[in-house]
């Protein structure tokens, strides 16, 4: 409890200090609850998610950092490893590959990397996964780009 709070506070200070270090990630802590965080990440370039801003919500357990934070997309995203309805993310580092050395910031970076390199073999979004596994990259990209325009583009959103 105290360890997780101290750790999160340290991370908060780190984020405040290095706000401009990573322009793709904007990590914000809840005003009243240090265990609740939200992040805004920019879709990586040369992907169908380019130009979109995706909101993530973090629910940090009290056993953090020994337990991984629970992260999900608030913004709708068409991605094989993200549940389309709940926004749940299938990422190994958020499950069994979690390391206490990771931070919320590094989780955000991992999610950006996951957006750039989807893993169709362990899909949460079966439609997206099937498109990729069948080799229809163009279909996947157009679907993803469409949902990025629909859900993640600031102009429209």
């Amino acid at each position: 409890m105290q360890a997780s709070r101290a750790r999160l506070f340290k991370e908060y200070k780190e984020v405040q200090r290095e706000k401009s270090a990573d322009p793709d990630i904007q990590l914000v802590c809840d005003d009243s609850n240090i265990f609740k965080w939200t992040a805004l990440i920019k879709g990586p370039s040369e992907t169908p998610y380019e130009g979109g801003v995706f909101q993530l919500v973090f629910a940090v357990p009290e056993q953090y950092p020994l337990q991984p934070p629970q992260v999900r997309f608030l913004t709708k995203i068409f991605h094989p490893n993200v549940h389309f309805k709940t926004g749940e993310i299938c990422l190994d580092i958020l499950k069994n590959a979690w390391s206490p050395a990771w931070t919320l910031q590094s989780v955000c970076r991992a999610i950006i990397a996951l957006m750039a390199h989807p893993e169709p073999d362990s899909p949460l979004n079966c439609d997206s996964g099937n498109l990729l596994r069948s080799g229809d990259v163009r279909g996947y990209q157009s679907m993803a780009r469409m949902y990025t325009r629909l859900a993640a583009s600031p102009k429209i959103g």
């Binding site: 360890a3 101290a6 750790r7 506070f9 340290k10 950092p65 020994l66 206490p100 050395a101």
Partner: peptide, 8 residues
């Protein structure tokens, strides 16, 4: 200086 896990 501090533990990377608990930041103590």
């Amino acid at each position: 200086k501090s533990c990377p896990i608990c930041c103590e």
